[in-house]
């Protein structure tokens, strides 16, 4: 499924890696202390990353 745009708000991200570990499709990756989105086309919009991010740092947008 395509059509998702993942926005990482770098200012808020503390690098806890919860979103990376709980993503069922392995869309996200850690770049030392910051989340990156190397595979946005795999996103199924389950919203787990947005719901579980304690730092208000990741958002799943419809494209």
């Amino acid at each position: 499924m395509s059509g998702a745009r993942l926005e990482v708000i770098e200012r808020n991200c503390k690098g806890c890696s919860i979103c990376v570990e709980f993503c069922p499709k392995n869309v996200l990756e850690m770049d030392v202390f910051l989340v990156t989105v190397p595979r946005p086309e795999d996103c199924i919009k389950c919203m787990q990353c947005e719901l579980l991010c304690p730092d208000f740092a990741i958002k799943v947008h419809d494209e």
């Binding site: 503390k14 304690p54 958002k59 947008h61």
Partner: peptide, 30 residues
């Protein structure tokens, strides 16, 4: 699709003081 939490948060308050991974942020979203 993305939830607009910012409208409920006082401007300029993020990032919050909780440690990386602290569950309180998840509860605040809820």
């Amino acid at each position: 699709m993305a939830y607009d939490y910012e409208k409920s948060i006082r401007p300029g308050k993020l990032p919050h003081i909780w440690c990386p991974g602290c569950g309180h942020g998840i509860v605040m979203k809820g």
